[in-house]
Design a protein around this nucleic acid. Sequence first.
DNA 1: AAAATCAATCGACAAAACCGATTTAGAAAT
DNA 2: ATTTCTAAATCGGTTTTGTCGATTGATTTT
Lengths: 291, 291
Amino acid sequence: MELRQLKYFLKAKELLNFTEAAAALYISQSTLSQQIKQLEDELQVPLFNRIGKRITLTEAGDLFAVYAQQSINKAADGLELLKDLNNLETGKVAIGVTYALRHVVIKALILFSSEYPKIQFEIIFGTSQELIQKLNHFQLDVILTFEEIASEAHFKYLELFTSPMALVTSSETSLKNKKTISLEEISTLPLAMPAGGFSTTQFISKAFEKSNLYPKITIEINDIPTLLELIKTGKWHTILTKTTIENEKDLHAIPIKGKNMTRTAMLISLKEVYEKKAVTAFLKILIANLK
Amino acid sequence: MELRQLKYFLKAKELLNFTEAAAALYISQSTLSQQIKQLEDELQVPLFNRIGKRITLTEAGDLFAVYAQQSINKAADGLELLKDLNNLETGKVAIGVTYALRHVVIKALILFSSEYPKIQFEIIFGTSQELIQKLNHFQLDVILTFEEIASEAHFKYLELFTSPMALVTSSETSLKNKKTISLEEISTLPLAMPAGGFSTTQFISKAFEKSNLYPKITIEINDIPTLLELIKTGKWHTILTKTTIENEKDLHAIPIKGKNMTRTAMLISLKEVYEKKAVTAFLKILIANLK
DNA sequence: AAAATCAATCGACAAAACCGATTTAGAAAT
DNA sequence: ATTTCTAAATCGGTTTTGTCGATTGATTTT
């Protein structure tokens, strides 16, 4: 039993005339005759009565037609769904982001959703390690984070932009007028830092080590919005990429002096996995609206 | 898109391993690989991610699988239904009967239903002409009546038994002891007869004509049970086949003298129409229980 | 580094889908 | 009744395609 045969059968049932049905199906009458016969053989019951040159449906044919039609419909529905998927009328996108790049995703998300309102999103915030693990388990389509120390062969990387590391302070700070600041100066200030899992923290720790400096980290916290609240009190300072506080009015970023004191934002995805149409479209919008 | 390909796809989806799936399907790995590829080409979207030697489902594959399964299920359901039809677990039978043969059908119906309780029946009483017309319009599977004057080529006839024409009277009749009776004697009696549409009435009218006799028909009625009620009063007599009053205790049948004063009960069906399994089985029981 | 595993690909073959022509037989027209 | 017309079945031959075995290329395991 094949869908082809079911389609032939239904057309013959509709027209109750093999010759016409064959014409409507763009096949020869002999082919139709043979295919119907083959189907009947498989079903072990005639679908049509052959009364002289006329044909009528048998009880079996009548009952079977319902299922034949449903079978065809289901297959057609599946095809239709995939078309929708290609036209971005359906589908789910899962994106991982490090908090620092929050505003980049939010902006793209708003733009994308107004154009393709039917696509569902799952936005996962987490540390780079957490996100990479999820990517490897096919739980995310793409992640947005800063460059990794070790790059992996089965990942596809796309650089987005670079952002300087910066001392982040309250807007009311005495450091306000400084254009840049050195690690040494920072090491005298009271710091509140993101927890160890955050790649920025790891990055800056290494920088302090190299310079033989010991920063005064009095608070470690794994929630960035809370961290920013603390900084706004003016009692602590922190170190983040400048882009992290893009839209924060009450905070001020002073770039840090020295080589390599920048980080590169990247898109990371799995190399050999089919990229969903919706993901491709989303990333296109994201990249086009970076500045 | 063919059911074959959908089955292949689902097995591959289930095992996530083309080699094993091919083995489970009793086809070669190369065939499976090609058929999946062909399906993907038609759907214009990959169903699997090929990550090195491993495969995983794509979003499209995941979504499509639901419909593929449903399509296959519907086809299988259709097949299942036809099997039930063959096993007499489902199906409808429409039978036409002339009233005279009522008891034959009732008996068979009771026996058949206890053996195959799921088969539905439609029992249509009517005159021979009415029933034959319905048979020609495929509204009946088979009819049970007396032999027709004109036999038609596209009918299949099966003789069941013969029954003498008889004068039917109340049991309380003075004619009680007669073994037979002549048309001439009958023509002196007050008669209530079935209406002209009934074949028995037509048959007996011709017999009177031939003998140049004029029966005293005072009532014509097109409902046999009512006719029988009238006869039971003893005020009228009627002429029917003896078999008509098989189970009537208060009535008495006196066979009519003369040649050809018998009628033959017959099964009539359409020659070239597939006979439903249920009909075949029903007729077998009917024939086996005639006496 | 070697062996094993797995999907993709290639060429060959067989099955089957398909067609055109013919046959058969019922229906319609003469 | 006879002829004509029409529709389904059937027959051979052609083309398509489903299938296989062998091989390749790439990845994982040993």
